[in-house]
Amino acid sequence: MKILVTGGNGMVGKNILEHEKAIHYFLLAPSSTDLNLSDYTSVDNYLKEYQPDFIIHCAGLVGGIQANIARPVDFLVCNLDIGRNIIMAAKNNGIKNFMNIASSCMYPREAQNPLQEELILQGELEPTNEGYALAKIVATRLCEYIVKENSSLQYKTIIPCNLYGKHDKFSNKDSHMVPAVIKKIYEAKQNKATEIDIWGNGLARREFMYTEDLVDFVYFALEKFDQLPQNINVGLGFDYTINDYYQTIAGVIGFDGKFVHDLTKPIGMRQKVVDVTKLKQLGWEHKTSLEEGIKKTVEYFKIAILHD
């Protein structure tokens, strides 16, 4: 099977390409020079030339709370253009199978946890990443509309919880929480700091899954794509507090200083954990524990730092 993986240079894309099952498929992972997803003509021409059997769409502009707050226009428009172009070009070129990888940020901020797939557009979004969420909702709905108009097409959406792992961004400004905290605590230990600040009271709850687990599901789904529901959550089905993540990361790195809570900083949604009922019905669940995933990610981070 010839599969086009968009976003092959991102965290999820790189893990897809490196997975042990990748050798069973012919994977196309063009750079942005070869495939400009922001330009419909470029996408259309690429699909006409290479004619993939299947598309896994995981490209996008991503970032943590600070990046989303600072650049809402970019996070909306860039992701909106990318999603629309690849989905419509796939449809217009007769590609029957499309896996759209979205995000649990699409769920309403006040929705009852665990978050069920049917809750999309059932309430107001979290303001700190609303632009990104809106773009992902549009792509998800577009896949639904396409299937509604033509039931012979399988354009389905995977909704992962928050992710971390190899090939993540380790930056104070652009990262999601786990890689940002790994960098912060690692540098604090290197600098012999005695305390670290935590945004908010640390009691907000988050569900972070190791990226390799998501990629395991991607390959699982490739083999059972006709059995997947239209939209499906992929996550742990349980969560941890922000304080738990800080303490686990500190334990792995060996930082023994104290934590100070900065109550002036935004914390986002107080809880966000996905419902995994449909996932379990398919017979799949994650494999990597939090401590094991953090250990692997810290090791990768150390290698990345030394390489830079």
Rank of each mutant, 00 (worst) to 15 (best):
L47D: 08
Y246I: 06
N36L: 08
I182H: 01
H57M: 01
K2Q: 04
H57P: 03
S103T: 15
N100T: 05
E110K: 12
D81W: 04
D308T: 07
L306T: 14
V234W: 03
S38Y: 09
L61E: 14
Q122W: 00
L37G: 08
V181G: 00
Y246S: 02
Y40E: 09
G293H: 09
Q112I: 15
Y40W: 11
M209G: 02
N9D: 11
D197R: 08
I87A: 14
D168F: 01
E18P: 00
F208G: 03
V138G: 00
L306Y: 15
G63Y: 07
E144D: 15
I87S: 11
D275F: 02
I82M: 13
F259G: 10
Y186W: 13
N191T: 08
H176A: 06
K272T: 07
Y145E: 11
D39M: 05
A102W: 00
C143L: 07
T140L: 09
A102E: 07
T33I: 10
D74T: 05
V234T: 04
A89E: 10
Y107L: 05
I242G: 04
Y186S: 05
N172Q: 12
C143N: 11
I198A: 05
G254L: 11
L228W: 02
N93R: 10
F238Q: 13
A70Y: 07
D197A: 11
A139I: 00
G293D: 09
I65K: 03
A139H: 00
V77C: 04
E126D: 15
Y25T: 12
C161T: 15
R109G: 06
G251D: 12
N9I: 03
Y46Q: 08
F208P: 02
L17Q: 11
Q247A: 15
W199G: 10
G293T: 12
V215T: 08
G64D: 07
R206V: 05
Y164L: 06
D256C: 07
N150Q: 09
S103W: 04
K280E: 11
G235S: 04
S151F: 00
F26Q: 14
I101F: 06
K189A: 07
C58H: 03
